[in-house]
Design a protein around this nucleic acid. Sequence first.
DNA 1: GGTTAGCACTCGTTCGGTGAGAGTGCTAAC
DNA 2: GTTAGCACTCTCACCGAACGAGTGCTAACC
Lengths: 341, 341
Amino acid sequence: MKMDDRKFMILQAIIDDYIMTAVPVGSRTISRKSGVGFSPATIRNEMSDLEELGYLAQPHTSAGRIPSAKAYRLYVDRLMKMVDLSDEETGRIKDHLNRRTAQVEEVIRQAAQALSDVTHYTAVVSAPQMTDVTIRRVQMVPVTDTSALLVIVTNAGLVKERVIRVPDGVDADQLYALSNMLTERLNGRSLQDAREQLADVTTDLGEHRQLMASVLGVIDAQLGDDPNVPLVVGGRSNLLSFPEYSDVEKAKSFLAVLESREKLAPLLRNNGVEFTVRIGPENGLPEFSDCSVVTTTYRVGNHTSGTMGIIGPTRMEYARVVSVMNYMGRAISDMLSGDKE
Amino acid sequence: MKMDDRKFMILQAIIDDYIMTAVPVGSRTISRKSGVGFSPATIRNEMSDLEELGYLAQPHTSAGRIPSAKAYRLYVDRLMKMVDLSDEETGRIKDHLNRRTAQVEEVIRQAAQALSDVTHYTAVVSAPQMTDVTIRRVQMVPVTDTSALLVIVTNAGLVKERVIRVPDGVDADQLYALSNMLTERLNGRSLQDAREQLADVTTDLGEHRQLMASVLGVIDAQLGDDPNVPLVVGGRSNLLSFPEYSDVEKAKSFLAVLESREKLAPLLRNNGVEFTVRIGPENGLPEFSDCSVVTTTYRVGNHTSGTMGIIGPTRMEYARVVSVMNYMGRAISDMLSGDKE
DNA sequence: GGTTAGCACTCGTTCGGTGAGAGTGCTAAC
DNA sequence: GTTAGCACTCTCACCGAACGAGTGCTAACC
């Protein structure tokens, strides 16, 4: 048996209906739709075929049918049409973003808020990764006798600050001199380069070896696909409005995942691809076996830098979500890259 | 009618039982408890009195009784006994905190995690406020042509960084010179003092007025009981384990509050008092009318600086929570104040 | 007079049964 | 190939009965 146009059409109709209602859809419902010129009986035959092909499933004998993960896959790959965002939607997004802020963290937070607000799903946004950027300046600001704030400024205008330990007896002037030395040597270099360069420098500077090791540690943390990239989550409670989460147990395990950076991070991985859509079991976590995750990347300067994702039920409005993400990806890239070098 | 010792004792027994089970407690249950030498009938008479006094309520005629908010109030004020934490509990807390980190944000996050983990309730911790501290150093690090990172270091070892706009044409050397000038003038001053001092300076420096205004803005934001103090929440999903949240609607509105900084912040206000316990309606939010919130403060250096709170059902284990908070408040104060200055 | 056993009463919960409704699969006719 | 008709299945909502937990009252007891 093979898929033909009519089967595609019926499948699409079923998915569209199920996405909106979350109720198993029966042959009569489809037959009644405008544009479908067939009786329920005919539809039933086709549905039976579609079930055999693995696109539909029946919760129980006398219920309608629901799309399988395979059906959503097909839908996303072939049937889905991009939609235009309404003015109201783009307006809502802009409302969230329009506050002038130079703080990266704040932009990320606003993005998560906007995404969850517009889609009514849950949004996760990762802070920009420092990959593919070059260093522009390194500066240490003394904090206490034994600690300093290490600030690394990159060409993309990103800033990374971290408090590091400083050995006793290194005073402010020395830190400033060291900062200048570091800036001079590392300016224009990528993090990888900087890492190697710094390893060399370290052997030169016997007395400041310990300090340089701290700096190196911070750079390393950035390089190694930093497991601590801040993740901002928005709209945690949104999914609870959907009938699939009327079961508190499910809701709880869903929320528990959102609290765990370790579990959440892999969901956002997308290898720099423009869009990823992971449907149900595809995303690995058993807790998310009836969730789908749509991710996209954003750029800072010319390089892909961070990821954002929408988490919703498998029957999510993929078309709309993809459109929203597309819009948002560009908006954030613009905000973070805007008038910086 | 007046409260007597026996009534207190019975009330305490009822509350203790209800806290553990969440099930309306009947006369027989109390009578069976060791230490209570009365028959169910006697207990019933007393319970009837306690109901008349407003300490107990009956969900329906043939159910047991549940404590009212007034009863919990009495319990917290008079009946509750501090408990000692078990080794296992202090161990769990230490596990969360023992990683050496100099990053304030990270300490706060760990604290929230530890609190929620040990109590099984939801925890909120506010980042340290910069009140009552003096400035030790001010430094601007250039980021792009039009922005710089403003770093303010205080005597308590707290660091505040924020990206500010810089007028075109101010180069790195000038920023450094200005930083030194600012440090010199503001060193040792409180934020209030600094604010005034800076207002004076601004009029002197015509050409850098705009820049100084930005600096002033950052200080102002700290002074005005900053509405943007980061709040870290831990154990969001914990409360969903309790039967009072088996209703998804309730769970949802609860979680929605946790997502709103504006609603959450007032719950943490406690005017520097050592402990606050707000029971049910006392905390103002209708969404939290069957939650209780226990807060305490922590110090950085010698000054109260931040707040942490535990949110749980009204029938929370107040005694244990207060003990945990007490322990944690000191632990965090130590971590944040430790060997600085 | 406080305490308690006994008992009738109330009310929520559980469980089996029933009927309505939705939807299917099959068959036979178009 | 399409469709009307029909028997069949399964869920869900509803109903009433049995059950049990707990109360309030009364009368007896120490």
